[in-house]
Design a protein around this nucleic acid. Sequence first.
DNA 1: ACGTCGTTTGCAATCGTTTGCAATTACGAC
DNA 2: GTCGTAATTGCAAACGATTGCAAACGACGT
Lengths: 340, 340
Amino acid sequence: MTIRDVAKLAEVHPGTVSRALNEETRALVNFETAERVRRAAEQLGYRPNRIARGLKTNRSFTIGVLIPDLTNPLFPPILRGIEDRLEQVGYTALIVNTDNDPVHERRHLEALLARQVDGFIAATARLDTGSLARVAADGTPVVLVNRSLEDGALPAVTVDDRHGSRLAVDHVVALGHTQIAHVAGPQNVSTGHRRYLGLLDALRAHGLEAPAERVGFAAAFSEPEGERACSAVLDGGGRVTAIVAGNDRLAIGCYDALEARGLRCPEDVSIIGFNDMPFIDRLRPPLTSVRIPQREIGAVAADLLLGQLSGEPPDAREILVAPSLIVRSSTAPAAAAPGS
Amino acid sequence: MTIRDVAKLAEVHPGTVSRALNEETRALVNFETAERVRRAAEQLGYRPNRIARGLKTNRSFTIGVLIPDLTNPLFPPILRGIEDRLEQVGYTALIVNTDNDPVHERRHLEALLARQVDGFIAATARLDTGSLARVAADGTPVVLVNRSLEDGALPAVTVDDRHGSRLAVDHVVALGHTQIAHVAGPQNVSTGHRRYLGLLDALRAHGLEAPAERVGFAAAFSEPEGERACSAVLDGGGRVTAIVAGNDRLAIGCYDALEARGLRCPEDVSIIGFNDMPFIDRLRPPLTSVRIPQREIGAVAADLLLGQLSGEPPDAREILVAPSLIVRSSTAPAAAAPGS
DNA sequence: ACGTCGTTTGCAATCGTTTGCAATTACGAC
DNA sequence: GTCGTAATTGCAAACGATTGCAAACGACGT
């Protein structure tokens, strides 16, 4: 079932069929002929071979999407945002999991290039800049998600982490807390670092500060690390009535640390997470968290890429999307100071 | 950068380059020539164009994967299982979300076909049999996941739901429960139905039964529906000490229903879920649940498909993978009968 | 009646591979 | 020295579409 079969049935030249069926060249062929062709195609159930088309036009209408791990609940919504946008314009996403392994990353990048993807969306945390930049330099558009290059060489769409931290701090401050601790994520990951910086800023804006003993650094965004870092803070000596965690999993670790010490949340200490993961509202207590508009991030990234693909200047700009605070029951007004 | 450039550099005919670089035809070319070609290709950073190759060989080395919704935590692990397997042999998955919408489904199916996918893995619950069967009849291998056709016309890999129900029942029975209720999922979805049937079987095997007032049917796998169905059961009059839910979300709904009635879990009633979703161990109490080896399911499905693609007879068989019970704190020994 | 122009269509090359077939070479057997 | 055979390699035709170019055709003004 090729274009030739349709041509035969419609009694025209294959070239004419191609033009008749192609939105952009439709105008070149007589209306009635086009109709005849369309009917013939319909009748035969003809489906243009995108592969053959791609060979000639040098466009595959596919986008390579690199993520660390699909099972990390952060990514599926982003992917939906991307896919929903892409599919509207006939593109398809090729999703690969890198597991943050440089070797995998390279291999996948190569494989996607061999498949002639028209562009890349990379959400991988530490994909070495080199390969990606080289790809971009060779003319394949690249958009970063959830991380950006220091030099801003590549367009990126990321959460406004600092703003998120500010939301969190504003919230606990409004509740009367002043002894605010931070269980920070890994500082070699942009989100971890930015949230930490944002927190410092926000505290300062309220005339507060976070002395070293009140911030614990987790080596990974995991519950055990959250518990470890939180424990360090709690056992550090100073009083703490509120904890802003680098993400929800760290916050869960904080729950564990509190529980191990017989402290109650939110009565004794309030906790705020980051990401607003699914079912986080089902914890005890339901976690107050900074929500990230993941789907929107994906959609914006896709739009950015599609823009570049249709020839727009590749404004290597970083787009920040604003998070919002979802208040639940893990935060409460600060108790009166002990002894009052 | 085409095969011709490599040919020029290696001073051989393009055809020879093709053979030298292709694993299966390598033997046809002199070893030294092949080496020369390999070096030339390496030097130029040559990457065979899979699109062109696909055009000629009529194979795209892509697989269409249809799922309802990527953000449903059930699917990412399955997809990883699929992708990990596929990538090992040079295949790539094209993932599309159908949202269980027939129109979307058809459109996506067409689009994937136009992209010349070599096969399909369909995890969509209610993709109308017709289109898929037709595709299979036209020679494109199809494997079903998480659902099967009544007539077994298509190979499928599914969870052994009945076995899962048996595990759940055995567990609560072993804990001394006899008044066991079921909050069932929608009965027009195969998993919902099978789990219900399995439960009946398992109860019978223990000489127990589930009178109508002790099973509630949810219209969807959602928390509110779980709460509704559970409430009906609890308010039905009969005493209930254990509830087996059709899945974890229904189980969460059960938690809500219990709480609304001042009942405690597991002291007053034990609850078991199904699926063992991420973070379900963080609920209060941590939910005992039937775990599904999702990744394995994906891997098995991929293997089945790859088998068909390499010419194996398409044994339209249903492969059942065994779930396991993860015991946590939502189940406890039955309290002594009231009054004793 | 003729040149011109615009519309519509056909022709054929092309995209980058793969692959059946033929041509070339080397080599040992006779 | 000739011939058959095997091992290599070159040749060219595909695969199914797109597209620049030219041909065909009618209409129209002069």
